[in-house]
Amino acid sequence: MNAMTDLRLMTYSEAIREAMAIALEADPTVILMGEDIGVYGGAFQVTLDLIDRFGPDRVMDTPISELGGAGVAVGAALTGLKPIFEFQFSDFAMLAMEQIVNQAAKLRYMLGGEASVPVVFRLPSGSGTGAAAQHSQSIEAWFGHVPGLKVLQPSTPEDAKGMLLAALADPDPVMIFEHKLLYKMKGEVPAGHYLTPIGKAAIRREGTDVTIVAGSIMVHRALEAAEKLAAEGISAEVIDLRSIRPIDHATILASVKKTGRLMVVYEGVKAFGVGAEISAMVSESEAFDFLDAPILRLGAADAPVPYNPDLERAAVPQVDTIEAAARRLARREV
């Protein structure tokens, strides 16, 4: 049976839950770990009801011990299990940096290829929920700096499911940054088991005047902006990055060669972020000679995420700011 023929409308969080259920069903070495993922269903209800189907030995509530919990997942992955570890908020991964960066990412290399750490970390991420500075960050770029990790950002329900299944099939540690505002977003999702390839960007809208590279929720904002720009004759190509480590250089370069204008939109703090990496990569490539304008980065303000809703909105790229920036770029006003 071709899974792709059977599409259902479901939310991003339902799609993630379905992926976990498929994995738990198919592979007895898969376990879920995290804070309040059992009867509570997780802070964002993503694991809801899984404990009823698979029991507390496979859907394990951990104490509030991010460092220890992540390390247990790493040790379990090293010795035969495939843990999916949920951080309640991506911000809390900072408590576990040691185990993610010093251990999980480096074990295969330090041991000369003699060890494998097939752990998946799920990280609810991003702003827009009024949760302020310690519950709203977008820190995926930090992990982009770490060889040994893979770092994914699904923007659709279909990808959220396919990326989680691909992460589980991967023998190395994978971090999946899920956007909290996308959990309720609906989309068509294929039934059954399928893999979204890791490291392959998706062109979500074709265009000829300007390339907008975005990830996660910024893809949707960029698409909305592109739609408005189309009304005034500006044709924007929107690339969904999907994976920031590895980055799909080829898709970005091909698009830049076509449009001659590049803008990178991301929710992390603008400085030292995904935009810096992509613009540098383009500058170092053969696509540089195709540029007709400076590369533009649109990222978060140089501040912690604020509480006040107007400030919070203003702190990260929105449809109107993306639209305005793309217009300036298309008109060569930068």
């Binding site: 070495t29 376990i31 030995d57 496979r58 460092l67 220890g68 919990g69 992540a70 390390g71 247990v72 997942a73 790493v74 040790g75 379990a76 992955a77 090293l78 010795t79 035969g80 299990l81 843990p83 040691e98 185990q99 010093n102 251990q103 074990l107 330090m110 041991l111 060890a115």
Partner: peptide
């Protein structure tokens, strides 16, 4: 031997994870 470790305390949670594998499997 799952490895020496350059981080003081780095091996402790990993050991607990290895024990979890044994129990679950």
């Amino acid at each position: 031997n799952l490895g020496a470790n350059g981080i003081v305390g780095g091996g402790l949670p990993i050991a607990v994870g290895a024990a979890l594998s044994a129990k679950r499997l």
